[in-house]
Computed example of a mutant assay.
Amino acid sequence: MISFDLAFFAVAVPAVLFAGISKGGFGSGAAFAALAALALILEPAVALGLTLPLLMLMDAFTLRPYWRRWHWPSARLLILGGLPGVALGAVLYRVAEPDVFRVLIGAVALGFVGFQGAVRLRLLPARARPFSAATGLAAGVAAGFTSFVAHAGGPPVAVYLLAQGIGKTAYQATTVIAFWAINLFKAVPYGFLGIFTAQTLLADLVLAPVALLGAWLGVRAHHVVSERLFFGVTYTALGVIGVKLIWDGVT
């Protein structure tokens, strides 16, 4: 159930705004934060169903400013791998309990923060040459799976794209087209599994202006705002949220 009270909007509005900014200008890395934050106050399935239409709205908005600026060979592999990854996520969803998803979302959040921290501290060596096509497909499968169960396909996509030697805008545009396709793949099984409800769709209508505002701000900020500042705040919040979700799931 969704209670449209002050607590809901206090969490949902900044979470959706940050997700929009991330998808609009910073490679979708922080878009996962919206689900993680909402999972603190909603059942995981409700949070998943509420978030996906908003992410799809952000995808549609950001397609135009990045149209054909993506690296198509990489995007094609990620999209092709994303379809079986989504199918794997649908299978897991049918057999897992809600607390499993709380722990999974929390673990992905902490893993994401750890990965980004290791990259920035140069604890992970830079890839000397681009990954193979098979690795691109594997990254797509991983992105499809983690995106289905937690809207968290950013890390495997980032690992793959950072090694491809493409520019900042091509990187951003490639994540836009890849997740536009993967989120479309997810919508069909979400519908069949009953993840969308009248309440989640009503919440989406209420939060749609926030999603569009965030995406617009992200596109504008792509060339002017420090990624270090934006992601520093986001990763700190994700770390705290991840610990809380794991605690709630195991207790």
Results as ranks from 00 to 15, higher is better:
152 A>P: 01
101 F>Y: 15
193 L>V: 07
175 T>A: 06
149 V>P: 04
214 G>W: 06
213 L>K: 05
110 L>Q: 09
142 A>T: 13
167 G>F: 11
158 A>L: 08
105 I>Q: 13
169 T>Y: 01
124 L>F: 11
136 G>D: 12
115 F>S: 08
101 F>Q: 05
168 K>C: 01
136 G>S: 11
117 G>L: 10
169 T>L: 15
179 F>Y: 06
151 H>P: 09
149 V>C: 09
115 F>E: 05
108 V>A: 09
131 F>P: 00
135 T>L: 09
159 V>L: 13
160 Y>F: 14
127 R>S: 14
202 L>P: 00
219 V>F: 03
115 F>R: 06
111 G>V: 02
115 F>C: 03
153 G>T: 14
184 L>V: 11
101 F>G: 03
168 K>T: 15
177 I>Y: 05
221 A>V: 00
163 A>K: 03
219 V>N: 13
109 A>Q: 05
131 F>H: 09
201 L>K: 02
177 I>C: 09
146 T>G: 11
140 G>C: 12
121 L>R: 15
206 V>R: 01
104 L>D: 05
169 T>G: 00
191 G>K: 04
186 K>H: 11
120 R>S: 07
123 L>H: 14
157 V>F: 01
113 V>S: 11
157 V>H: 02
155 P>G: 07
128 A>G: 07
127 R>D: 09
120 R>G: 13
221 A>N: 07
193 L>S: 08
213 L>C: 13
181 A>P: 08
198 A>K: 09
145 F>Q: 04
183 N>L: 10
103 V>D: 10
220 R>Q: 15
187 A>G: 00
108 V>Y: 04
185 F>A: 01
189 P>Y: 06
208 A>S: 15
127 R>L: 12
212 L>I: 14
107 A>S: 12
176 V>A: 10
146 T>F: 13
182 I>R: 02
138 A>E: 08
205 L>E: 02
196 F>P: 03
191 G>Q: 00
204 D>G: 15
182 I>E: 08
189 P>C: 12
158 A>I: 06
107 A>M: 14
137 L>E: 03
145 F>C: 07
203 A>D: 00
156 P>F: 04
197 T>D: 07
204 D>M: 13
173 A>Y: 05
174 T>F: 02
163 A>L: 08
221 A>R: 07
195 I>F: 05
120 R>D: 14
208 A>P: 05
125 P>S: 13
106 G>R: 04
139 A>L: 10
197 T>K: 02
120 R>W: 04
159 V>N: 06
136 G>H: 10
174 T>V: 02
144 G>Q: 12
121 L>S: 13
194 G>R: 10
163 A>N: 03
126 A>V: 15
154 G>S: 13
109 A>P: 05
189 P>L: 06
158 A>G: 00
188 V>E: 11
107 A>R: 06
214 G>V: 02
116 Q>I: 07
130 P>Q: 07
186 K>S: 10
208 A>K: 11
218 G>N: 07
139 A>P: 08
